[in-house]
Design a protein around this nucleic acid. Structure first.
Lengths: 122, 122, 122, 122
DNA sequence: GTGGTCTAGACCACA
DNA sequence: GTGGTCTAGACCACG
């Protein structure tokens, strides 16, 4: 697993984001077992407490569930996963449209350019 | 003028990017006079040398031309401006498609979502 | 190392030219390590920033490559070196023919004179 | 007449060189009358004393002769003119060969390149 | 006034 | 130690 951690923002937030990506994209399937905090921490090269904090955040988001004795699993509630996925997608769309707007493109143009690019590759 | 400068990358590069945005989006029109190095430096809150470096870069990019003692002007070659604008737009498109891909969306889906968002607003 | 610096042109440009000469003539061999910016600056009797500027220019010309913490090396791309060498040689040829032309010599005469001089020495 | 005068060397020397060029290249023909010092000085935009000094130098070189009452004329001794012309040509040849030598070319190569350039244009 | 150059000295990231 | 960046302040040529 790839961990891209930079020192300019809280580590646990970056862990949250990157784990979330795996969850909502299905890389870690719904209902599946997560590696232990210790394993994840070693893998990411961070303190277990930091990883713990990230997972606690994800649990409060409803993306993972903690089973007292059986470790953590990805939520089976695919609605939550889909919701978060849509939220992230919306953020990216907004970001894209805003960026293109500063370049002087209307939303319609920004979309048309993507279509042109797509048909060009297809 | 808005200057967003962060300490995590060379300031002169950030100045380059933000000035480039104004140029290619037409906020500073082709052939128009630019503020002097000293004015821009004061406005951005940086050392005149740093601003000078940014402008020297833009000149080597062909976006601005310097007239020894008469200040700098935006290039009148709208082809260069358009070319850079398209390059920046392409970067944003790639970034968007890549980001959506990590969320598990195909390019076609990423485009369709934008269209849905657009019709929803329209 | 010989440094001929005059005050009538930007020092950094003169540094560029003189370093370029060493590079394309093979005095500093392809792939070889360059002295550090600070060493070169002391040697040439200029400010490190000025030498840095010259080397940055040479890097953008593709003649040298910088390895973040391991100093700079001459490019291993002998094609670039040869190309620049040919460019400089062409400049000198043009300059020679022009100078002889102002003296009233045709290009053919200017060449013949060189041949005479050569056989005279040989 | 074109006068290229820079402030980095004595003016009278630069005048000497540029007048010499006209003389040996035949632009001002042997035996011909020279403009008056005053005219030349105005034309070149220099003090008449400076022009006077230049002409005195040329006279001592034997390139011009002063006729007490009839102004100055170019020498009729074409041998002197030819000699100076050859000297200047030799200087340019030396300069060329030296320049090419610093680029790593032998004299033979330097000559061959000129021949190649010439046939290419012919 | 304009842009351009140079110096001096500081700080940073990297390894 | 390396290269890279930034600041501060000075001087120059040009018009």
């Amino acid at each position: 697993m790839q961990w891209n951690l930079t020192g300019d923002r809280p580590i646990y937030l970056q862990l949250c984001e990157q784990i979330t990506l795996r969850l909502v994209s299905g890389a870690w399937p719904p209902g599946g077992r997560l590696p232990s905090v210790r394993e994840l921490a070693v893998d990411a090269g961070v303190n277990p407490n930091t990883m713990q904090r990230a997972l606690a955040q994800l649990e409060s988001d409803g993306l993972v569930v903690t089973n007292r004795t059986a470790g953590r699993t990805v939520t089976e509630d695919e609605g939550v996963l889909a919701h978060v996925r849509h939220e992230l997608a919306n953020e990216k769309m907004e970001e894209y449209l805003e960026g293109m707007a500063t370049l002087g493109y209307t939303a319609a143009e920004a979309i048309a350019l993507l279509q042109g690019k797509e048909t060009q590759h297809g």
